[in-house]
Write a protein that binds this DNA or RNA. Sequence first.
DNA 1: TAGATTGTTAATCGATTAACAATC
DNA 2: TAGATTGTTAATCGATTAACAATC
Lengths: 205, 205
Amino acid sequence: MALSGRTVERLSVYRRLLVMQGQSGEESVYSHQLAEMVSGTAAQVRRDLMEVGVTGHSKRGYRVANLIEGISKVLDDPAGTRIVLVGAGDLGRAALGFIKGRNAALRIVGAFDNDPSKIGRVIHGYRCASIDELERVIAAEQVEVAIITTPAGVAQPVCDRLVAAGVRGIVNFAPTPLQVPEGVWVERVDIATALEKVTCLTRSV
Amino acid sequence: MALSGRTVERLSVYRRLLVMQGQSGEESVYSHQLAEMVSGTAAQVRRDLMEVGVTGHSKRGYRVANLIEGISKVLDDPAGTRIVLVGAGDLGRAALGFIKGRNAALRIVGAFDNDPSKIGRVIHGYRCASIDELERVIAAEQVEVAIITTPAGVAQPVCDRLVAAGVRGIVNFAPTPLQVPEGVWVERVDIATALEKVTCLTRSV
DNA sequence: TAGATTGTTAATCGATTAACAATC
DNA sequence: TAGATTGTTAATCGATTAACAATC
């Protein structure tokens, strides 16, 4: 199928909006309505939906329930995705709060830190464990995805341990690019860059 | 000059790496070294640097100090950028910690919340003020950029107030796309999407 | 000099948009 | 039917990469 990263991002946003919309009672949407919500074009919405294989009706548009189901079939692993988080600082806490209860297919199975004062604490319902437990939990729970919310200085060594233990996908919040071997996917969430980009581009708009 | 968003993102990362590298004593870098650090190509690095106007040496590469200065001239507003943050929850706290002391050209001039229990608290050295003060501070400090770290439900009304008060650039951490008029730049930092993207693409790599 | 690197243009690649027949 | 919308292909656009003369 080979969905592009851009398409996957948009699908994720469509689904989130549709889930909200579903609660408001509307049963169907037109491509131009979805486009308006994401400030995109109707053509792109239809193209994205074509790629996931959901189909609409030439007069009534797309059924919301259909869309959510079709997008979820593409985005979610039916077996669920087990996730660990490393770095229980402000950012880690924020990430945990953000994920909690948002998507049933994403399951946090461990949060780790090397700070003894954090180990044992419960954050958003997840108990923080010692980083020494990392490899054991990854193996035991067959963890495939990890979130790095450590300081920049330890992000690479943490990444190396995660990859060695079998993690195949990483969301990196640390302000450092990570070096990973072929076959590991890294998604960067770069807060510092986002801010600098806005300040720069705001002046040229 | 019209730098593309992608180029600006990479410049921000180059600079951050170079600032670290500068501390390690190296005085110059080759394009292929920078490329390796960001997992990119040397051709793209040279192209990006060409666009900012810094120039290298055909044998010695680029001087680190030159690069940092040249990139900063493009990314930073010489007058400094004044920034407000709205939403002093976990995510707001993390963002404040992240920005603090990282870039002297970016200055947080206010953090706001509507929760009385948060107002007056000091977070990473910034005192949280009532959201009622928002417009006054934006006008008084000539704020151009804002960070939204509120829950999804209030992100749009907060955005509307910011824009009405004169903000031209927004970093949006809330999981909702924002509707803004022409001339306002929104940069989305979408944690939920990043996670879903990784879980989806990890399975197809 | 020979060899490596820069600066820049041309070629390639991929993603978005436009267009339109088919459908209801 | 007339009008609006979908599904999909072709055209356009922009960004990345390749190539190479110029430089040291």
